[in-house]
Amino acid sequence: MLNVKEMLEELKASPYEEIEVVTPHTGVIQFVGLKAGDRVAGPGGKWNEKPGSVLATLTREKNKKNICATQKGVVTDIAADLEGQFVEAGVRLLTIRHFLSKDEVIARILKKALYLFCAPERAKYYFVPEIDGKIKAGGEQSVKPRDGMEMFIVSRMKRETPLAYSGPEGIIYAVYFQQGDNVDGGQPLIGVCQESQLTLIQDVVNRVQGEWEEQD
């Protein structure tokens, strides 16, 4: 049985996550004058269409690209020695300490309550075109997975194979992967909510709304 209270206490003891910002690709890096302790904003707008605060710029083949904060938080530990340097892909630029919002706390707790359908092996995963279309048109909760339903395409070593869902019937409550990104074996792909769980989910939402204090 899920102990929501205990989980909330655990999260309150460490109410943030450290996000390392790394270069997405090669290029010449220019910071924008941030210093440790500065606050930055995450993406905004109805669909997160407004990018977060600019942290640095990366210039590659005359194209300047902003590197923006993916979450709001406080900047710590800037790699200032990289200023003006040509850097490789995956180089750490700075760290953002991000304090968890109510929605994030709810998502973390629900991850323990939902039925998680996990990646059977490390691979890239995609939804099959029919499911993908449905999600784009009606959202994740418009898809009702049932046992044996062909839902995913597994792509590894340039070979693609279909993957059927196995588990209880319900609705997709959360999608935990980005299409085309590598997912390790055992990591959840989707969280499925069964009808019988709706009360529990409401309870989690109520408790978090009442007890969690957002720090920024």
Binding site: H25, T26, G27, R60, E61, N63, F86, A89
Partner: peptide
């Protein structure tokens, strides 16, 4: 990523 190749 072609731009990566050309940037390098």
């Amino acid at each position: 990523d072609a731009s990566e190749i050309f940037a390098v």
